[in-house]
Amino acid sequence: MKTIDVYILTGFVGAGKTTALNHLLRNEPLTAANPALIINEFGKIGVDGSLVARQDLKRYDINKGSIFCICTKTDFLKALTEIAESGCHQSLLIEATGIAETVDIESFLDAPKLKEIYQIKANLCLVDAANFTRVAAYLKPAKTQVQYADALIVNKCDLVSDAERDTLGQILESLNPTAPRVQTTYGKINTDFLAGIRHNIHDNKTLAQPPEDIIAVSISTEKPFDRDVFYQTLDDLKDNLLRLKGNINFGDGVRFVELAGTTISETEPSKELTKQNATPTAFTAIAWKIDRETLNNSFFDCVS
């Protein structure tokens, strides 16, 4: 029986999956291999679908979102079986939702009878350079999608500074040291790069050391902060802190502080935000290579 080559695209909303999908569809090797599409985008049926460049292709929308991850399996298996039985596709492109676990999708393709037909060529994860660290602290699949990818495509690099791009590179390296990385804008994926990707089976994947976790802490206190100590802390933690955002009461009034990449800004807080907060100081920080307790303590040490 003829096998069907499978390309999987993962990545959080906004990482540029649909653009990348369209790019792949218009280029070799997919353009000649009559691809079938499986689109599994959470809560966006018909919206993303209409953006797909080639409307002539056979498309399956897995519409349960991955809200019931296991129930999605039934729909996935049904679509995979239909595609295999139709016998007219040489390739399959799967656009996964940003909240799907890569291991689940790979396990669907590994089901009895299907595994002889489907052959994963590449599992590509699109990474949004501007937002990855923001989401990764909260959404588990944002990290696991990177960990289980065969190649990482870092998109929207034009929106971040060189320093931020370097840090992101280190984070991705820590999460997945074996996957080749390519930087891109507008989701363009080079055909040669695609041809060079080897699919890794992740059954017993062992990393030399566990990846550095990305953590988030929310600080909320009535007590005012000492501005000098706070800025000194930010400097001390410059290798750890990825983002910080929120209101801080420095004794002389509440300020809105934001750290993104290497830029720190301090402005007048919005009335709306201040009203919603339960305490004058209420901010969130995202960091890595540091444990939660140490990070928490560093901030509480800023209380004057």
Binding site: F12, R134, Y138, A142, A216, T284
Partner: peptide, 8 residues
């Protein structure tokens, strides 16, 4: 997932 950081 964005607002968990942006607007706790």
């Amino acid at each position: 997932f964005m607002k968990m950081f942006d607007e706790v």
